[in-house]
C-alpha cells in the first residue's frame, strides 16, 4: 500500500465521535420506544456499537492504541452473549404470554 495514503488520517476524531453519538442515541431511543422485545434488543446492539466505535477511534487517534481494539473485542463478545441470553428470555416470555410485547410483561407490577 502506498504509505502516503495508509498513514494519513482520512478523517478526524470528531467525525467518528459524531457517528458514535448518533448510534448511541438511536439505540437509546430504540430501547425506550419499541414495544417488541427483539426491537429493544436491537437498540442494545446499537448502543454497544456506538461505544465500540469510540474505543476504536480513540485507539487510532490517541495513545490508547491497540488496547482500544482489545476492549472492543470484549464488547463484541459480551454483546453476543447478551443477545443469546436475552433471546432465550424473549422465547420464554413468548411461550408464557403468546406475545413478545414488552408492555405486557407486568406480572410483577403491584
Amino acid at each position: 500500500m502506498n504509505p502516503e495514503l495508509s498513514t494519513a488520517a482520512p478523517a478526524d476524531l470528531n467525525l467518528y465521535l459524531f457517528v458514535a453519538a448518533v448510534l448511541f442515541v438511536s439505540g437509546i431511543v430504540c430501547m425506550a420506544t419499541k414495544r417488541n422485545g427483539i426491537g429493544v434488543l436491537m437498540g442494545v446492539e446499537l448502543v454497544l456499537n456506538g461505544a465500540n466505535l469510540n474505543f476504536i477511534a480513540f485507539g487510532r487517534f490517541t495513545k490508547l492504541g491497540i488496547d482500544g481494539h482489545v476492549l472492543s473485542l470484549f464488547v463484541i463478545v459480551l454483546a453476543a452473549a447478551e443477545a443469546a441470553i436475552a433471546l432465550a428470555i424473549a422465547l420464554n416470555f413468548y411461550n408464557n404470554h403468546l406475545s413478545i410485547d414488552v408492555d405486557r410483561a407486568d406480572s410483577l407490577s403491584g
Partner: peptide, 11 residues
C-alpha cells in the same frame, strides 16, 4: 467499514 478505515482490520 469505519473500523477498517481506522486500521482495525481484526475488530
Amino acid at each position: 467499514g469505519l473500523f477498517f478505515s481506522l486500521n482495525a482490520d481484526f475488530v
